[in-house]
Amino acid sequence: MASSLETINLPHLPPLPIHVAVYRDVQNAAFLKSQLLAGQPEYEYAFIDASMVLSRAHVIAAVFRALNDYSHSRLRSHNVHSEIVFSLNPTNNIAESFRRFGITDSTKDLLVIKVSTSPEITHETVATHLGSAVEGTSTSFDDQTLFELSDITKIKKSYKLGSLASPSKAADQIASKENVEIKQRLENALLGAIALRGS
């Protein structure tokens, strides 16, 4: 199956390509989680429940934080991939970050991130492995897809942002000026929480 894997290079950091894929209707989340927990090297990814992510900027902020800590030897978790999941969490509780943001047995929509920490990890090797490992429908890593998959209520609860208005997902509301502004305010609050978490 064709993969919509995207490879990104973040400025201001060492040249470590980041490979990102999004899958809908994943059928084998329990298997993927078991391989990750067993420490299987070929399953060393950041497996993130896509319902807990609002936008590309939300994801990139966590990746930037994790890569920055990785490049300065300041990782708080096992590796750069677990650090990405941890970086999404607004608190310093590592176990909680995996419960809230990581893959679960019931995850249906999955965001997968792989950092090229060695020359053998390329766009092609990641795309090939994910194509055979993930039983789901590959889709685009874009704001529209992530917003569709996001569980706004759960995200706001995790970040303690209950007082902020929730953006509407109704087709006739999504592009309205007011709704765009509400979503932008929520995104800014999420980015601030990631940036400000105690380091």
Rank of each mutant, 00 (worst) to 15 (best):
M1T: 08
S4N: 15
L5M: 08
L5C: 06
T7P: 03
H12C: 11
P14W: 11
P15T: 02
L16M: 12
I18P: 07
H19C: 05
A21H: 04
A21S: 14
V22T: 06
R24M: 09
V26F: 01
V26D: 06
F31W: 10
Q35I: 00
Q35C: 09
Q35V: 00
L36Y: 14
P41E: 15
Y43I: 00
E44K: 08
I48V: 15
D49R: 06
D49P: 05
S51Q: 12
S51D: 03
M52W: 01
V53M: 09
I60A: 04
I60R: 00
A62D: 09
R65D: 15
R65V: 08
A66T: 01
L67M: 14
L67E: 12
Y70Q: 01
H72S: 14
H72A: 15
R76G: 11
H78P: 02
N79S: 13
N79R: 02
E83D: 01
S87V: 03
L88Y: 05
L88P: 04
N89E: 12
P90T: 07
P90V: 05
N92R: 11
N93M: 06
I94K: 08
A95I: 09
R99E: 14
R99W: 09
R100E: 12
I103P: 02
T104R: 14
D105A: 13
T107V: 11
D109I: 08
L110N: 03
V112A: 06
I113R: 05
V115F: 09
T117I: 13
T117W: 06
S118Q: 13
S118E: 13
E120P: 00
H123W: 11
H123I: 06
T125Q: 10
T125N: 10
V126A: 01
V126I: 08
H129C: 07
H129Y: 11
L130I: 04
G131N: 10
E135F: 09
S138Q: 09
F141T: 04
D143T: 03
D143N: 14
Q144N: 14
T145I: 11
S150N: 09
D151A: 03
K154M: 10
I155R: 02
K157I: 12
Y159H: 02
Y159I: 07
K160C: 12
K160W: 08
L161T: 04
L161A: 04
G162P: 02
S163R: 13
A165S: 13
P167V: 01
A170I: 08
D172R: 12
Q173A: 09
I174A: 04
K177Q: 15
E178A: 15
V180Y: 02
I182E: 09
K183H: 12
Q184F: 11
E187V: 10
G192N: 14
I194K: 02
A195Y: 02
G198D: 15
S199P: 03
